[in-house]
Simulated assay, not measured.
Amino acid sequence: MSPKHLIINCDDFGQSPPMNEAIQHLLEERKVSSATIMAPAPGFEEAAEWSRRRGQPNIGLHLTLTSEFNALRWQSMTGHPSLHDESGHMHKTVEAFERNADTDAVMKEILAQYEAVVRHGIPLTHADNHMGSLYGMAVGRSHIPQVLRQCAKWKLPFRLFRKVHPTDTLLSSIPGVERIVAKASSLAGVLGVAIPDYLLSHSFEVEEGETYERFKQTMITKMYNLPDGISETYIHPAVEDAGMRTLIPHWEKRVWEYRLMLDDDFAYAIKDAGVVLTNYDYIRKYGRASRVGSAFALARELLRK
């Protein structure tokens, strides 16, 4: 049996003080693999300064092109009008972003976010994407080829995946996801960009009838059903905060995710299931595919009708 390696990444580092507090605690206690930071968000300076001061070694770039909450909005760093809605903030939905964003403006914004993090003296380990806005899952307008080329220049791994695990109902429900993944992962291989084998998702929202205990058991079951290879899952942890709970939809799920990482039952399940908690340094070493094999695979996918 091949080893089962898992990355647990904290998305949305820098979004708000309650999220920063939770993520910093989990990084300090080494309960998670890494975190990815949002350069345009209101809590970025706090998160970046903490990371720089500690010399935190496992911080990635959370490429942010959307601003989804009514009560917590942010603007792009470059100010291009195609990246904003009528309020002057980034688009609320992935669909609105895909329909309106100019590709050149997107790439300039991504570069600006990268440079903002680097200026703070943070050695980035990888990149991923807030709300999946770059994947083209809403109306089919993907920026993944451009982003992968940029990651190749930065020499950074990127959150993508080679296969869809059958137990992942969220990803499996996307029409044509297998072909989308095959083309994108093959292109990553051609460009020499390291990626995980699987991405394991779960509902961002509190589902009907869901409790913390039910959520915990779902996540524990995933540990025992983890596929061979390198998987990544992501969380959005936050501490209890009365103000944010009234402003941010499904804030309770974020508090649950924070609690789960500190839960002894979850820690035991990881060990008992033989899962090795790893990070993007491991992806950098072992997550690249053969460029020649990837080129053949990409050609095959492009020629398919």
Rank of each mutant, 00 (worst) to 15 (best):
E98A: 14
E28S: 13
R53K: 15
I180C: 07
P40D: 02
G79I: 03
R304W: 08
V32I: 15
E210N: 03
M223Y: 09
G209Y: 08
D168N: 01
E213A: 11
R288K: 15
E301K: 14
D241P: 06
L262K: 14
V276H: 03
A112I: 08
Q113W: 01
A238G: 12
R30E: 07
S186C: 00
V206T: 09
V164E: 03
V117N: 00
D272K: 02
G79H: 04
P3Y: 04
L199Q: 06
A182F: 08
R30Q: 09
M131E: 07
D85N: 15
H84V: 05
Y234M: 15
S67M: 14
T233R: 04
L298N: 08
V193A: 12
P166M: 00
L26M: 13
N100M: 11
S33H: 01
Q150I: 05
E301A: 15
E86V: 12
G176A: 09
G136S: 14
I195W: 07
R304F: 04
L187T: 06
E178F: 07
K108Q: 15
K163W: 11
E49G: 10
L200H: 02
Y224L: 05
H236G: 12
L199T: 03
R254D: 10
R162Y: 03
E45V: 12
Q56M: 13
H120D: 14
L111S: 11
V292Y: 05
F69K: 05
E49I: 14
T211M: 11
K285E: 15
A112S: 12
Q56C: 10
L262P: 02
R259G: 00
K92C: 14
R179N: 13
M90W: 06
L226K: 00
F215Q: 06
Y114A: 11
F161T: 08
S34L: 02
Y198A: 01
F158M: 11
Q150C: 06
D272E: 11
G88F: 09
H5Q: 10
M219A: 04
L27D: 03
V190T: 08
K285D: 15
L83N: 06
S87L: 13
D104W: 14
R259N: 01
P17G: 15
C151S: 11
A194Q: 07
S231M: 05
W251G: 02
K108R: 15
S173L: 01
H62S: 02
S2Q: 13
I230E: 01
R259C: 01
I270V: 13
L63Q: 13
D102P: 11
S186P: 00
P3K: 04
H236F: 13
R259W: 05
G293N: 04
P81E: 03
E240K: 08
E207G: 12
I180G: 10
M1K: 15
K183E: 05
L83C: 04
R30D: 04
K153G: 12
G55I: 02
R254Q: 08
P249G: 02
K31E: 11
I230C: 06
P166G: 00
H165P: 00
A188I: 09
L111Y: 10
L303Y: 10
F69I: 08
I110Y: 09
L247Q: 15
R288S: 12
A35T: 01
Y268T: 10
V106W: 09
D104G: 15
G88R: 07
A194E: 06
S76N: 08
M131Q: 13
A269H: 00
S185G: 02
